[in-house]
């Protein structure tokens, strides 16, 4: 494929990816204008935009929208970074050491199928309804996802590349650092994207626990007062955060694991 062909292909991709949400939005506006659904159930996009502007200038329940966003982002980033770091570390260790794998197998695999939301009552009991519960809940879900992905990534390392490294004099650490870790990176990058999606889901759920700020709080509060347009605006902000982080991670992934899919 020539360079111009590639550019055209890329342009078409961006075009379709941009037009598809716009088309949905247009259909939605059309449906609302024709009165197909009650504005309480499905308000028109213009009303949601107006609520968003209202929140952006006047805040929500006496707190600026950016404080809500900031509170949510702070929770999610602390939990995400810590959970990913520990999860990747443990996953790599499990992939490399049978003993550590045996040690962690039952605890982690018993925990993994439990929906994190099912742990909320326990977490409230143990850590209260404050920040600790919220952050730990997200942390735990990210950790479990990353552990599985990192461990699977270690398995992706081919026997031949391990042997090649050993026969060129690599010691255990060098084999890990130069061969096993890079082999696991594609899977780890994919895991990071999945975990980010889950982290945002758990974030909103954990903010339903209580507190007076955060996007989850905002949505719950607005819905209990039937302020549907505010619910939608809050949901849209979370969605946009999710989209932006996912695109960012995907972009970083393409740069970091540039060899993936090109072997």
């Amino acid at each position: 494929m020539s360079r111009t062909d590639e550019r055209r292909e890329r342009l078409r991709y961006v075009l379709v990816a941009t037009l598809s949400p716009l088309a949905i939005l247009a259909l939605w506006a059309f449906a609302a204008a024709r009165g197909w659904a009650s504005p309480i159930i499905l308000p028109p996009p213009s009303a949601i935009w107006a609520s968003f502007l209202d929140m952006a200038t006047n805040g929500y329940s006496g707190i600026s929208l950016w404080t809500h966003v900031g509170a949510s982002l702070a929770r999610v980033s602390v939990a995400y970074v810590a959970g990913a770091a520990l999860g990747v570390g443990l996953g790599l260790l499990r992939g490399r050491s049978r003993l550590i794998d045996a040690l962690l197998l039952a605890p982690s695999e018993l925990l993994r199928p439990i929906p994190p939301l099912g742990l909320i009552p326990l977490f409230i009991l143990w850590f209260g309804v404050g920040e600790t519960s919220k952050v730990l809940l997200i942390f735990l879900s990210v950790l479990l996802i990353m552990m599985v992905n990192a461990q699977a990534g270690v398995r992706a390392c081919s026997l031949d590349s391990l042997r090649a490294a050993q026969s060129m004099g690599a010691n255990r650490w060098q084999v890990f650092r130069f061969v096993v870790l890079p082999s696991a990176l594609p899977q780890i990058m994919t895991g990071l994207r999945v975990a980010m999606g889950t982290a945002l889901t758990i974030l909103v759920a954990s903010e339903l626990l209580g507190g007076d700020r955060g996007l989850g709080f905002l949505i719950l509060d607005a819905s209990s007062f039937f302020r549907t347009t505010y619910v939608f605006a809050g949901v849209a902000v979370i969605g946009l955060i999710g989209l932006a982080t996912d695109r960012g991670l995907a972009w970083a992934g393409r740069r970091i694991v540039h060899w993936e899919g090109r072997r």
Binding site: D160, P182, L185, R262
Partner: peptide, 11 residues
Amino acid sequence: VVFQAAALFDW
């Protein structure tokens, strides 16, 4: 060792 499938480090 020279491997059948080269076994180079792609990274």
